[in-house]
Amino acid sequence: MSKSVEIKLESLADGSISERFKQELSKVLANIADPNTEAKTTRKIAITLTIKPNDNRETAEVSISANSTLAPHKEVLTTIIMDRDNEGKPAAAELKSGQRGQTYIDDDGDVADDTGNKIRRLY
Rank of each mutant, 00 (worst) to 15 (best):
D107H: 09
R121C: 03
N31E: 05
L9S: 05
A71R: 00
E87L: 08
D113N: 15
F21E: 06
N117P: 01
D14N: 15
K89N: 15
T115V: 14
E87C: 02
K40G: 07
Q102F: 10
L29F: 10
A71G: 13
T50P: 00
D14L: 02
E87P: 00
D107P: 01
A60M: 08
S11T: 15
K52R: 05
D14V: 00
K3A: 14
R20K: 15
D114L: 01
I80A: 11
T69S: 08
L25F: 12
E6L: 09
A46D: 13
K118A: 09
A46W: 06
V28E: 03
N36W: 05
P35Q: 02
K3P: 03
A91D: 14
S2T: 14
A46C: 06
S2C: 08
S97F: 02
E38C: 05
K52E: 12
K8A: 06
K118D: 11
K40S: 09
K27H: 13
G116R: 01
N67T: 13
K44S: 10
I45K: 00
R57C: 10
F21W: 08
V76H: 07
T37E: 05
G98Q: 07
D85T: 08
S11F: 05
A66L: 03
L122M: 11
E6V: 09
N117Q: 11
Y104V: 02
R57P: 01
D107Q: 12
T59Y: 10
Q23W: 06
N86L: 09
A30F: 05
I119K: 06
L12T: 03
I7V: 15
I105V: 15
N31P: 03
R100W: 04
N56I: 13
P35Y: 02
T41V: 07
R57H: 14
E61W: 05
P53F: 11
A93N: 07
G101K: 01
F21G: 00
S97V: 04
R120F: 15
T78M: 04
S65H: 04
M82L: 11
E75M: 06
A13H: 06
D113A: 03
K52S: 08
A66W: 00
L122P: 01
D114Q: 05
P72T: 06
I81F: 10
A30D: 11
A30P: 01
S63M: 07
F21I: 15
L49C: 08
D108G: 00
